[in-house]
Nucleic acid binder design. Structure first.
Ligand SMILES: [Mn+2]
Ligand SMILES: [Mn+2]
Ligand SMILES: [Mn+2]
Ligand SMILES: [Mn+2]
Lengths: 238, 238
DNA sequence: GTACTTTCTTAGGATAATCTAACATAATTT
DNA sequence: AAATTATGTTAGATTATCCTAAGAAAGTAC
């Protein structure tokens, strides 16, 4: 099946390529920017596959006229290949920006999520996502709403923390008996907690509050909303 | 490879299932809510595949203990299967909500995008997405920013319109010669335009302005920002 | 310029997902 | 109850992607 057919049949992505092929192109493009030459080995490493898989993929991409490449030679994108790679990468950046600066998850995770989703987003969604990110990033529309948004986005349930994370309690949604018990244990707005450890099946979890170690079930921890405290990097190695 | 292995190896989605298998489960769950019994034929229709593909998938899902099903019999989700289906559907709803009410694309497209992306989103991203949608939907944080956001999200470049769409000009970013020419043709802020037709390759496009038909290249149309006018449904059939 | 090391390809085999064609069962009609 | 229609299954093939093992080419060391 040729590129054009695939595109029309709607089996594949906007580029007419499968997600995997898009990733190969994207990777080649990125490596080409960093290194003098693009090697099979490097592509394999980046994409976490073995070299024979890369060879096969390269043969297919050459067949499609997206790269130029001879046996045992180096890899170069053709103009068409470069164009597609750039399109994929632009979707990637847009999504990564969104995950990092709007959804406010860590850069590393933002990047990984972006690279998974980038193959499944229509051009229209992508444009709209750009508009949203622009809106949030632009400071012309400043005002309290952005602080409100970030405050909201940075909130977590206690059970979303990772081991070692510290956070300040923002709100407790528990009712009745449970609320009373949590208060007795010292959980209240403004108090700092540290997540010590999850049990093997993630339940229960151990948290430190006011120097005491307390064990909570996930359902209980879910009722506690916290605001993580950024770890001081400078303190990390003492 | 068993479910648990797959999950640990990180090959598949949170559920440990492939995107396709998740869609089968999701579909079965939805059909079960609407119909008395779930039929191979209906699953096939919904997922746009042939019946033998469904049969094979069902055999696999049964093997995994996610559905109960006998040859020529009806399909029912097991508890475990239902749990996964619900998780997939919850991701779907969250995403659809986001695409529709934050990115502001049509309900149909929002749904289709959601069903593509739902398989590739980590639980964390999903939670954050929910927070964002909540923030935008909640009216407690009212104020002008939301109007600003929607105004921004509803803007389009002239060349993003579909044939037949009408819109009001918001802004023209063209410079120099082009700007002069566009002004001469009657393009200015507040004026209404209608997109008549795209040429076969989408370029050029024909727009109507002040009763004249004008032909613009895509690059030119890109400089014109417009706000689409909702078509009056009641007028549609005269 | 031979020997060793690294890089790359080929060959052969696996898995997942799909299809068409042919056959089997179930449901409905006559 | 036989014939017809609708629904479902099996068999066999195809495509995409990946892997391991083995061998070939290129690069480096001495
Ligand atoms: Mn990717
Ligand atoms: Mn990417
Ligand atoms: Mn889906
Ligand atoms: Mn879905």
């Amino acid at each position: 099946m040729k590129l054009k057919d695939a595109r029309e049949d709607g089996f594949f992505n906007n580029s007419g390529l499968s997600a995997h092929m898009e990733d190969y192109l994207e990777t080649i493009s990125m490596l080409a920017q960093k290194k003098r030459v693009v090697r099979v080995k490097d592509i394999a490493k980046k994409l976490n596959v073995k070299m024979p898989s890369v060879t096969v993929a390269l043969q297919k991409l050459k067949e499609l006229g997206l790269i130029s490449y001879e046996k045992y030679g180096f890899v170069e994108l053709t103009d068409e290949g470069e164009k597609i790679a750039k399109r994929v990468y632009s979707r990637h950046s847009c999504l990564a920006d969104f995950f990092e600066n709007v959804l406010r998850i860590s850069k590393v995770e933002a990047d990984s999520e972006a690279c998974k989703v980038e193959h499944h987003l229509s051009p229209q969604s992508c444009r709209q996502l750009k508009r949203l990110v622009d809106f949030v990033n632009s400071s012309e529309t400043d005002g309290k709403w952005k602080d409100d948004l970030f405050a909201k986005m940075d909130e977590r349930q206690l059970c979303e923390l990772k081991e070692g994370d510290r956070a300040v309690i923002v709100r407790i949604d528990a009712q009745g008996e449970l609320k009373k018990r949590l208060l007795e244990l010292g959980f209240k707005k403004g108090e700092q907690v540290e997540l010590i450890r999850y049990a093997p099946l993630e339940d229960p979890l151990q948290v430190k509050i006011k120097r005491y170690n307390v064990s909570l079930r996930i359902d209980e921890a879910k009722t506690i909303t916290v605001m993580p405290v950024k770890k001081l990097e400078s303190n990390a190695n003492r």
